[in-house]
Design a protein around this nucleic acid. Sequence first.
DNA 1: CTTATAAATGTTATATTATTACACAGCGTT
DNA 2: AACGCTGTGTAATAATATAACATTTATAAG
Lengths: 130, 130
Amino acid sequence: MQKQETLTKNQKIILDIIEKSSQPLKAYSILFDVKKKGINAPLQVYRALDKLVKIGKIHKIESRNAFIACKNSKCQIANATIFSICESCEDVTEIHDHKLSEHLRDFKDNKGMKYNKYNLEFFGLCKKCV
Amino acid sequence: MQKQETLTKNQKIILDIIEKSSQPLKAYSILFDVKKKGINAPLQVYRALDKLVKIGKIHKIESRNAFIACKNSKCQIANATIFSICESCEDVTEIHDHKLSEHLRDFKDNKGMKYNKYNLEFFGLCKKCV
DNA sequence: CTTATAAATGTTATATTATTACACAGCGTT
DNA sequence: AACGCTGTGTAATAATATAACATTTATAAG
């Protein structure tokens, strides 16, 4: 625990919006929403997003170019994310599976690469869409 | 084995360029390279890329918006990819790890979702860059 | 062989996502 | 007070990707 409480005004505004959404939000849709709060330019959004990703408050869904809040209250886990994505309704859920996480954390390839992060996205059809 | 031999002219041109590169290529850099072969528009590139991804000849590195050839000669594996990415030199390597692949293939969450695909990207520093 | 159907092409325009560059403000340290 | 660091605001632009339309080629069906 160090400085994750000290978000700036813009960062708070953006985090707030993302946390209120159960689903990933795109940068420009966030921008649209925060115009009324005085955030006018894409860069202001992207800067806040970058920071929030860095400190683990949100995650980027790479295959969708969208951002979702980390539900894990103590998260800090900017570096190990697993998501399931429904290809029909686009519902995204963060997966917390201890065993799988362990496997990924412990993975070693045979090339001496030093890993500090991974991102895993599962695709398929959710219950509703099957 | 069915129709993976029957690539069209554009698809062949694009695949050829990607296969000749050991590293991922971006769509617009491919476009630049193929202009001399009569492919003039982004859409022509993206269409070929889509098809090649679909049949498993190439993979998209989602975090980099770039495309790399599948080295697995019999690949057909458009649906299960694992890559390691060096955050310093951006070197990308496809990982073939039987045990890890099995784990991912067999993964079941507790929400009844039916998976048909996954994409995993590891980030870190390669031997040279450590 | 002819018709129908699906898949790919070529082209123009445009939408979406993300970054560069620059000037400046706030804050903690020395 | 000067420095370094992080964040802000703004304008411009770069990079990535898709929509819409007309046409052509390939494949399959009668």
